Computed example of a mutant assay.
Amino acid sequence: MLADGRHAELADRTILITGSTGGIGKATALGLATMGARVLITGRDRGRTEDAAREIRAVGGGVEVFIADLSSQSEVRRLADEVLQRHPRLDVLVNNVGGYWNTRHVTADGLEHTFALNHLAPFLLTNLLLERLKQSDTARVVTVSSNAHSMGFIDFDDLQGERSYSGARAYNQSKLANVLFTYELARRLQGTSVTANAVHPGLVSTAFGADDPGRAQRLFVPVLRPFMKSPAKGAATSIHLASATDLGHVSGLYFAKSKATTSSKRSYDESVAARLWEVSTDLVGLTTPAATS
């Protein structure tokens, strides 16, 4: 640790954190900035994103703002282009952005919103930034999933919920997709300087899902809220994975409470992961080989 309280290993690190205007994302950005990293934060609303940046600057953190609605693939591509143009170095990508919608919504690309934002956005952004990450001596991709993934199933016959939609089912599927993506990414990145791991943040008290809550959320969240983690505690595992020196070469794992743990049986199905990768590649229009060493 440096004399000013910063961590030496983060003093020259640049970290991009998506969905950083509130909740776990903002807490992750605050924590890493306080440790000395330069954080790049994203949000849909400029006012909220600038407010988050002011909070980070108030604790002495270095921060840069990027505005993008990551449910839109053109916005994901624009964000990647801006990051690449403005930063010759990128050391960590924290795929934190996500959401829950009880009713089915369609994005500007004609895709179901939950799948588009929670899975396709991190899939596309990661692939667009991989070459820059590979230029770092030790780079990391941290993707925020959830234990809800254990209830998920990848329905290749109805990925977009066109025939049958449930907010919970769509969310659980997207969180399983996060873990499958992480494991497949780690396999494809073997032999490179980039690691990939997934995170379960725990039950955290945020405004998550408040725009379109389901019946269970309306009934149970008020009861459970006093027992939920604070955003700072929910961000602890993401911060640990982004910063811990002993994790520099640890890849392809699922973490909860800052420790590696076992994910669901379905998440280890390599054939499903490979198929999901190919389907996702088509859905986001990647024309070059994705995440190959």
Rank of each mutant, 00 (worst) to 15 (best):
Y100G: 00
R104P: 12
R104Q: 11
H105L: 11
V106N: 03
V106I: 15
V106A: 07
T107F: 10
T107H: 10
D109L: 04
D109I: 00
G110C: 01
G110F: 05
L111V: 11
E112G: 06
E112L: 08
H113F: 13
F115A: 03
L117H: 06
L117E: 01
N118F: 06
H119A: 05
L120S: 02
A121V: 01
A121L: 09
P122W: 04
L125Q: 08
L125H: 06
T126N: 03
N127E: 12
L128V: 13
K134L: 15
K134S: 09
Q135A: 14
A139E: 05
V142G: 03
T143V: 15
T143S: 11
V144A: 07
V144N: 08
S146H: 07
S146N: 04
N147T: 15
N147A: 14
A148W: 11
H149E: 15
S150Y: 00
G152R: 12
I154A: 07
D155R: 11
D157I: 05
D157Y: 10
Q160I: 00
G161Y: 05
E162I: 03
E162R: 15
R163W: 02
R163T: 11
R163C: 03
R163D: 07
A168Y: 13
A168C: 05
A168N: 12
R169Y: 06
Y171K: 11
N172T: 12
N172Q: 15
S174R: 06
K175Q: 10
L176T: 02
L176H: 04
N178S: 14
V179Q: 04
L180N: 04
T182H: 01
Y183T: 01
Y183I: 04
E184Y: 01
E184M: 02
L185T: 13
A186L: 06
A186M: 00
A186T: 02
R187D: 14
L189F: 06
Q190V: 15
S193Q: 10
A196G: 07
A196W: 05
N197G: 08
A198P: 10
V199K: 02
V199M: 08
V199R: 06
V199T: 08
V199I: 15
P201F: 04
G202E: 12
G202A: 03
V204R: 04
S205K: 13
A207H: 09
G209V: 12
G209H: 01
G209T: 11
